[in-house]
Simulated scan of single mutants.
Amino acid sequence: MTEENNLTMTEFNQDNAFEIYSKKAIWGFSIFFAPIFGGVSLRQNLIDDNRKKEANIVLLVSIVFTVLTILIVNSVESKTNSLTYLLNMGWGAILSEYFFKKYFPNDNHEYKNIWKALLISIAIIIPFILAIIYTATE
């Protein structure tokens, strides 16, 4: 390896010294949990990149997406999970395709393992699922 190539690799490693959640992870968390979960993952990427202002904007947008989903789904007479998934897919696409690409256009980072975030997400969702089950049986 030449000295010029070595310098380029060193610069690459310094510029991308932190791991981020992938675009697919953000989209998946948005679909299967809620847009706020994808937003929190993208927010963490931005925090790790020292972009606090952008991180807070992404969090606010993901909260708005989640609230809109709740309002839209609850305003429809026939409640179906498919509408929720469709909305979550749309919001997740905006988070992963617009915001992710806007802030991480090169996409040449190492990716974080999602297991910790997945376990935290499941732990947050379980009480809601239990509440739905409990209220449905009464």
Score class of each variant (00 low, 15 high):
Ile31Trp: 12
Met1Val: 08
Phe100Tyr: 09
Phe29Trp: 11
Ile31Gly: 02
Leu42Lys: 01
Ala117Glu: 08
Ser78Phe: 08
Ser62Gln: 04
Tyr103Arg: 02
Phe100His: 00
Asn50Thr: 04
Lys102Asp: 00
Ala136Asp: 08
Tyr103Thr: 01
Met9Ile: 15
Ser78Ala: 12
Glu138Arg: 13
Glu54Ser: 13
Ile122Met: 13
Ile125Trp: 12
Trp27Cys: 03
Asn88Cys: 14
Val61Gly: 00
Glu11His: 10
Asn74Tyr: 12
Thr84Pro: 02
Leu59Glu: 04
Lys24Cys: 03
Val76Ile: 14
Glu3Asp: 11
Ala17Ile: 04
Ile120Lys: 13
Gly90Leu: 08
Thr137Tyr: 12
Glu4Asp: 09
Gln44Gly: 04
Asn56Cys: 06
Phe65Cys: 07
Asn50His: 12
Ser121Glu: 05
Gly90Trp: 07
Val73Tyr: 09
Thr2Gln: 06
Met9Trp: 07
Val67Gly: 01
Val40Asp: 06
Lys23Met: 03
Leu95His: 02
Thr2His: 06
Thr66Gly: 03
Ala25Ile: 09
Ala93His: 09
Arg51Val: 00
Ser121Gly: 06
Glu54Cys: 05
Thr66Leu: 05
Phe18Asn: 10
Thr84Trp: 08
Glu3Phe: 14
Val73Asp: 08
Leu71Phe: 14
Leu42Cys: 06
Pro127Leu: 03
Thr8Cys: 02
Glu138Asn: 13
Lys52Gly: 07
Pro105Trp: 01
Ile120Cys: 11
Leu59His: 03
Met9Tyr: 14
Lys112Arg: 13
Thr8His: 06
Phe33Trp: 06
Val61Ser: 00
Ala17Phe: 11
Ala25Ser: 15
Ile70Phe: 13
Tyr85Ala: 07
Val73Asn: 10
Leu118Glu: 06
Leu118Asn: 05
Leu119Ile: 10
Met1Ala: 05
Ile120Gln: 10
Tyr85Arg: 00
Ala93Ser: 15
Pro105Asn: 03
Asn5Ala: 10
Arg43Val: 02
Trp91Ser: 10
Phe99Asn: 00
Ile114Leu: 14
Asp107Trp: 01
Lys101Gly: 06
Lys116Met: 12
Lys24Gly: 07
Glu97Met: 10
Ile20Pro: 13
Ile57Gly: 05
Val76Asp: 03
Trp27Leu: 15
Asn81His: 03
Gly92Gln: 04
Ala34Leu: 07
Ala25Thr: 14
Ala93Tyr: 12
Ile120Gly: 07
Leu42Asn: 04
Ile125Lys: 14
Pro127Asp: 03
Ala131His: 09
Ser75Trp: 10
Phe12Arg: 08
Pro127Ala: 02
Tyr111Asp: 02
Ile20Leu: 13
Phe99Val: 00
Ser41Thr: 04
Tyr103Ile: 02
Lys53Phe: 11
Trp27Asp: 05
